[in-house]
């Protein structure tokens, strides 16, 4: 076998044999990770869970959220959340059906803390992550009130937001992993 062919064969073998990395138990790796302190992790950790874990201190209500919405959101999502260049946000507070396939917040979103999490990390797209916690609570309250899920005067904070029951809470079936 020529050198070239031997090299080609040597390169090819791992390609066909790498379908199970986990079975590769002989891996010897350096340990190069730098330990992180609790304080350092806090600067990285932006996870908010469905049950409200991770929601920050702060509060807000729909009337303040409406002002922010009209300034920063309405251009893309429509003046009343009916959708535009970006998706619709407002629907009736009832689960979807074959005749009512709405995927807006009131009909589809299963967890209220998800709204806070997504708005805080992603919205508005040209200035993602710039809203304060109070502004984000206010916007979340406005969206929930516009969808008829909470009252216009209800204050949202870490405790009350986690307690909101979304109409489509039980509307999902896990497929490739079991609860």
């Amino acid at each position: 076998m020529s050198m070239l062919r031997r090299a080609a064969a040597a390169i090819f073998v791992p390609v066909v044999a790498t379908s199970a990395i986990a079975a590769d138990t002989d891996v010897k790796a350096p340990r190069l990770g730098t330990p992180l302190s609790t304080g350092e992790i806090a600067k990285w950790d932006r996870t908010i869970f469905a049950d409200g874990r991770g929601l920050p201190p702060g509060k807000g209500a729909a009337k303040d959220g409406r002002v922010i919405y009209e300034q920063k959101c309405a251009d893309c999502h429509g003046l009343r959340g009916e959708g535009g260049t970006a998706e619709e946000l407002v629907s009736e507070p009832k689960p979807p059906s074959g005749d009512y396939p709405s995927k807006a917040i009131g009909s589809y979103w299963p967890f209220a803390p998800t709204i806070f999490d997504f708005v805080r990390r992603s919205m508005p797209p040209a200035a993602a992550g710039t809203l304060t916690a109070n502004e984000t609570y206010a916007l979340t309250a406005y969206l929930l009130a516009a969808n008829g899920v909470i009252g216009e005067g209800d204050e949202m904070n870490a405790k009350t937001l986690a307690a909101v029951h979304m109409p489509n809470r039980d509307g999902f079936i896990w497929i490739d992993v079991k609860p």
Binding site: T47, I48, F49, I105, W109, T114, I115, D117
Partner: peptide
Amino acid sequence: VTDAPAMTRNETA
């Protein structure tokens, strides 16, 4: 690393 999914916007809505 956690014991539950976060239920982010992209895996729910």
